[in-house]
Design a protein around this nucleic acid. Structure first.
Lengths: 197, 197
DNA sequence: CGCCAATGTCAACACTTGTTGTTAAATCGG
DNA sequence: CCGATTTAACAACAAGTGTTGACATTGGCG
């Protein structure tokens, strides 16, 4: 072991590996959000990103590696979490009950959908769990006061998750055609009650 | 390959199809609850039920047919839904925060787990949705008074779903090692706030 | 330019999936 | 007791999975 070749850090982005990585992550986020981790094959993502499936493995190491990259991009920063805590319930409720624009429904990469669609996968669930706890729950608990901040933040995450599951994953009609103002009001009150303890 | 396996296990009577159906549904409920619809193969269920995978298809028509049979048995009747509505929040919270018995954790067929673990599957989600709306939300709304009974019931379903997702599917430690009394109290209050509108 | 690592491509691997067809066995009606 | 029908068991299918290794092609730097 005379000259230990040091892992050859790419001096500069040789050409477009980073760009490709970025695009693959973007496309993968969209597809994972729509179908969930298990239901999506590497080849499907590869085709959508106009790349070879083997190249994804070469870029991210594995499918799980790609998923972690997708997660860390999806959970980058959620500006809603920095809202004043006395408005947070109303803001979250408004965000969750906002009507979907039908034409974007398919293409819009929804972080929530990514989360709940892949929460069942035994591979993806642990990765999602750490991201959720670090970014969402942690970022929320920071703004709280009083005891049990983390548990209260987690309970809010549970509310968001549950509503999103029922509305987006299970496609409940009650939130689309029902009394949306009342829904938003009830949801806001339930969230706010947890915020204030 | 071994072709000389003992194949003639003297099974019981002729009309054992119904009994087999029942057993298959039972073990399928357990396995689906643990891993979700997509992640479980027919062969796994078949092996657990000591039956051939082809036999499941012959009995239920398809994998989706088996799943519908599982659903209609799992959502038979939930006695919790008939509780007095002024205690319902506390009862649901107690049910959701109850400590898991480690030895049963694996085998106990949990309807909630079945629901949330398979909610992501594009095949299973519609089937689950109708069962959830008919049995759970419908059965809950019956006991409510005042306006928007169904939406309020759906919001409670969302809360149950979300908490169960975070605790069981994502395995959040906050509910296992955290202040469980406080968690239960906060959850009960949030649910009850929706019940009472 | 020439070298060589980085970037792509192709095919194959070993495996699993749901489903079907074809057998063999078992059981009851007559 | 015989034959018909149900129940069961295998094997095979076509398709899809993540991953790997062997090749071709490039592009930046000495």
């Amino acid at each position: 072991m005379s000259t230990l070749v040091v892992k050859s850090v790419p001096r500069r982005a040789r050409r477009s590996a980073d760009a490709k990585r970025e695009e693959v992550v973007r496309v993968a986020l969209s597809i994972f959000s729509r179908a969930g981790y298990d239901a999506v094959g590497l080849r499907e993502i590869a085709a959508a990103a106009e790349i070879d499936a083997a190249m994804i493995v070469r870029l991210f190491g594995s499918k799980a590696g790609l998923f972690t990259a997708v997660i860390s991009q999806a959970f980058g920063d959620e500006p809603l979490l920095d809202s004043p805590i006395d408005e947070l319930g109303a803001l979250l409720a408004a965000y969750l009950t906002a009507p979907r624009e039908p034409e974007r429904e398919e293409t819009e990469p929804n972080d929530l959908l990514l989360l709940l669609r892949s929460a069942a996968s035994v591979t993806a669930a642990p990765l999602l769990s750490v991201a959720l706890h670090e970014k969402f729950i942690g970022g929320l608990a920071k703004h709280f006061t009083g005891p049990d901040r983390e548990v209260r933040a987690a309970l809010i995450a549970a509310q968001v998750l549950g509503f999103a599951t029922l509305r987006f994953a299970l496609g409940s009609e009650l939130f689309e055609n029902g009394p949306q103002d009342r829904t938003r009001q009830l949801l806001a009150a339930a969230i706010q009650s947890v915020i204030e303890g």
